[in-house]
Computed example of a mutant assay.
Amino acid sequence: MPIKIPDDLPARATLDAEGVMVLGEADAVRQDIRPMRIGLLNLMPNKIRTETQIARLLGSTPLQVELTLVKMTNHVARNTPSDHIISFYHDWEDISVQRFDGFIITGAPVETMPFEEVTYWDELRRIFDWTQTNVHGCFNICWGAQAAVHHFHGMPKYLLEEKAFGVYRHRNLAPASPYLRGFSDDFSIPVSRWTEVLRADIPAASGMNILMESDEAGLCLLDDPAHRSLHMFNHIEYDSGSLSEEYFRDIAAGKAIAPPHSYFPDNDPTRPPENRWRSHAHLLFGNWINQLYQTTPFDLSKIGQAGT
């Protein structure tokens, strides 16, 4: 089944060109099924690109998915046209009475700041608490994942001496997890961050399980059953050229930065990178959506009740 997004969302043309099944709003109304309701709190600076990346992965599952784009209520995005935000995004306060099968919180370009100094930190804390009553399952990405484990478990983040930047090999530590169904033992995932959280800081009583880890880049994916959440500290959702765009952006800004690790062929930035993580990104998001589908109540009003 396809993904349902607004008819004129820019991501639609890209997804159509890639063969992703996209359902028009009028067609969705005629289908006598309940779609999976997924909210995307998009904190990334290039919101249009992130919308496309996430919609691509959600739209490759066999289930009909209805994607709702969400923003912080009072935060003004600086890198996305205001008419795009007005046309397609909902303030969190306006949708906070609604319930969702799944909710995704992205990374944000604030990772070197203390959490408490981020201008929208208080609202984000309210959103994390809201997910425990109005959302069946969460998927937190990069800084969003660091913020979640800090909020729920008090885990600190640490500034790295140099940016973890590139494509790193990771290990599958929980082959029996429903989220890693079909995963290889060894796979590659893009990493782009200045901070990290440490295995040693995971509280013993948290109930969290480490699903993915890299010898070089550290923790990657945690399963947090107590909060019905996955915490992904890296960028498995990235496009083939995302790291390249970040690298050349920093070069143009005069920043001293090495080419992304194990990304360009022969470490040559003039050569186009090869995508070695695409299949695992689709697999992870597909497993997450399937797990939501298997466990969420059919009646949305029952989400957040005991056991749901």
Rank of each mutant, 00 (worst) to 15 (best):
T119A: 14
D101A: 13
H90L: 00
I202T: 08
A217Y: 01
A174S: 15
E213Y: 00
E216C: 09
F187E: 01
S206K: 13
Y120M: 00
S192G: 01
H136P: 02
V97K: 13
E117H: 15
E93W: 07
I202G: 05
Y168C: 00
T133Y: 12
G218R: 07
I141F: 10
T195I: 07
N134Y: 11
Q98L: 09
A145Y: 05
W143C: 07
A176V: 11
F103Q: 08
N209P: 03
A205L: 12
S206T: 12
L180C: 00
T119N: 14
L219C: 02
L219S: 05
L159C: 11
F100A: 06
A217G: 03
Y89D: 03
M155K: 08
D201T: 07
S96H: 01
A145G: 04
F152H: 08
F152N: 04
D122Y: 11
P156C: 05
K163V: 08
Y179C: 01
S96N: 04
R125F: 09
A205R: 13
I189Y: 10
R169D: 09
V97Y: 13
F100Q: 07
C220M: 08
L160H: 10
L211E: 04
I210T: 15
R126D: 14
T131Q: 02
H150P: 00
P190W: 04
I95V: 15
S192P: 03
N209D: 15
L124M: 14
I189R: 09
F128Y: 15
F115A: 10
A108V: 04
P178E: 10
R126W: 09
L211I: 03
S206H: 11
G166M: 01
V191F: 12
F103N: 12
E111I: 03
L180W: 04
L160R: 14
K163S: 08
Q146S: 12
E216I: 14
W121H: 15
V167P: 01
E123K: 10
I105A: 06
L211C: 07
V191M: 09
R181W: 08
R181H: 15
T112R: 15
I95E: 05
E93M: 07
S184Q: 14
I189L: 09
F165K: 05
C138W: 01
F128G: 02
Y179K: 00
H153F: 12
I210S: 12
R126A: 13
T106E: 05
G154A: 02
I210G: 11
L124N: 08
D215I: 00
N209W: 06
M208R: 11
S184V: 03
V149T: 15
D185I: 03
S214V: 01
L173D: 05
A145D: 01
